[in-house]
Structures are given as structure tokens and as C-alpha cells.
């Protein structure tokens, strides 16, 4: 059978969304970033808002997110994506604006920008990839690193007495009147992938209502930083991350 006899319309059950470019992802094998990208891209595609969406990439492993999302994008300084997104949204209020940020970016260096964008209720979508580690710089401790978890800057495990506690920033922003929809999802099983996409789609739809910030956390694995195989890392995530960062909606719009 040649490729052409396989690739017939009746055989085609799944296509890459046109909101993703053809560039080969630079992420490590099994990393959650790729799947999260794709779900966000599919949500944008299905809502038909590719030409009306402006994204903000962070500093972190997804610094090159603009290679993969085929929408207009800006690259922000480390932690500043919510401020950059605020600037964009304030001058282009009709556009859909999202940030895509890791835990170091969003919950350490960019904490002030995150909290205040949410507190102002900026009508943006914040996508937060929580892998409990600094992936890009080689596996240092993140604000979300679990107690006892080893990293290159907590080689004997995170000691919360001297290194602080893992930060549940998603629960924190849910407390703010400025947030409209806050949820925590994952992309490690097909069922969870579908839920994440649904949440992202809902969040983008809400942006039209001008009701406040939508915040979607995705608890993700970092096989390289955690020094595990992708399969091991997913199992470890279920057993260790989810008990501390439970999945599900944290704040949903009142009906």
C-alpha cells in the first residue's frame, strides 16, 4: 500500500490543525508542552478565531511557542507575559489574547504580574503549565516543586523550612474577584487531553463576555527535568503531583 492509498478522505479521521505550523517541536520526547500546545491550537481553530488571536510566549521551555502557533505572537521577558498581554488587550480589546507560561515564569519571577493581571480581571486567557521544575535551565527548583522533590538546586529534596512551600498559585488567583474561570487540568491521558481542550475552548469563549481573567493550569510532566522516562513521569505525576495539585474546576462562572 502506498501513502496515497492510505491517505484518502474516507480514511482520514484526524488532521493536524492549521493553527499549528509544520515546524518540528523542540520539546523532549513525552513532554506535556507539545500536547498542551496542540489543544490550545485546536480550541482556537474550532472557534474560528485564528486571525483574531494574539498570543504571548514566556521565557522557559515554551519560549519558542511562536514557532508552533500560527497566530500573531509576542515574546515576553521572563515572567512579564501577563503585563504584555494587558498592554495588547487594552489597545486591541476585540482580539483574543492569551499567555502561555511555565511555573517559574508565572509563579516565581512573574508573581506580581500574574496576581495583578488577574486582580484587574484582564480579559485574557492565562495558560499555566505546571511541571514543578525549571525545565529550560536544566531542572532547578520551581515555586511549585513538591516538598522533598529533588532538583539541581534542591539536590537533597525541597526542604520547606528553608526553601519555602510549593505554591498553589491557581487556588490563590481563584480567590480574586477578577478571575472568571479557573481550572486545573492535565494532558497525560486521552480523557484528560479532551477535558483540557474543552476548558481552553470555554475559556476563550468567555473572553468575549468581558467578565474577567480565565486561568487554565495544566499539570504536566517534565521527563528530562525529573530524570524519568515519559511513562514513569506520568505515573509519578499521578501519584505525587495530583494529590497536592488536584485536578478539576476551582472557580466556575455562576449561572
Amino acid at each position: 500500500m502506498s501513502e496515497n492509498t492510505i491517505k484518502t478522505p474516507e480514511n482520514l479521521v484526524y488532521e493536524k490543525t492549521s493553527v499549528m505550523t509544520d515546524r518540528v517541536l523542540h520539546y523532549c520526547p513525552g513532554c506535556g508542552h507539545g500536547t498542551a500546545h496542540r489543544m490550545l491550537a485546536e480550541a482556537i481553530d474550532e472557534l474560528g478565531i485564528q486571525g483574531d488571536t494574539i498570543g504571548v510566549a514566556p521565557v522557559g521551555c515554551s519560549v519558542l511557542a511562536y514557532y508552533y502557533f500560527d497566530v500573531d505572537m509576542q515574546e515576553a521577558a521572563h515572567g512579564r507575559a501577563p503585563a504584555v498581554a494587558t498592554g495588547i488587550k487594552r489597545v486591541l480589546p476585540e482580539k483574543y489574547v492569551f499567555t502561555y507560561q511555565g511555573d517559574g515564569d508565572l509563579a516565581a519571577i512573574g508573581t506580581a504580574e500574574t496576581i495583578h493581571a488577574c486582580n484587574r480581571g484582564e480579559n485574557i486567557l492565562v495558560v499555566f503549565i505546571n511541571n514543578g521544575i525549571y525545565g529550560m535551565t536544566g531542572g532547578q527548583m520551581a515555586p511549585t516543586t513538591l516538598e522533598g522533590m529533588k532538583s539541581s538546586t534542591s539536590p537533597r529534596g525541597r526542604d520547606v523550612k528553608t526553601m519555602g512551600n510549593p505554591l498553589k498559585i491557581t487556588e490563590l488567583v481563584a480567590q480574586l474577584p477578577g478571575t472568571y474561570f479557573v481550572t486545573r487540568q492535565s494532558v497525560h491521558t486521552p480523557a484528560n487531553v479532551r477535558k483540557t481542550k474543552k476548558a481552553l475552548k470555554k475559556a476563550l469563549e468567555y473572553q468575549k463576555l468581558n467578565k474577567g481573567t480565565c486561568f487554565v493550569e495544566v499539570v504536566a510532566n517534565c521527563p528530562s527535568g525529573w530524570k524519568m522516562t515519559p511513562v514513569q513521569s506520568n505515573k509519578w505525576m499521578e501519584e505525587n503531583m495530583f494529590p497536592y495539585y488536584p485536578l478539576g474546576d476551582i472557580k466556575v462562572p455562576e449561572k
Binding site: 494574539i54 504571548v56 509576542q74 515576553a76 521577558a77 512579564r80 503585563a83 504584555v84 498581554a85 494587558t86 498592554g87 495588547i88 488587550k89 487594552r90 489597545v91 486591541l92 506580581a112 504580574e113 495583578h116
Partner: peptide, 23 residues
């Protein structure tokens, strides 16, 4: 549009975002 930011860091990054939109 006029906005009081939470810091000068945030303010200049808001400038970046809006300037990136050609404003």
C-alpha cells in the same frame, strides 16, 4: 487608554505589548 500598573516593570511590559500592536 490610561492604566496605573502594579510596578514600573509591569508598566514597561504593558508598553511592550501595546507597542507590539503598532500603537
Amino acid at each position: 487608554q490610561v492604566l496605573q500598573a502594579e510596578s514600573e516593570i509591569a508598566a514597561i511590559n504593558m508598553v511592550y505589548g501595546a507597542a507590539g500592536c503598532g500603537k
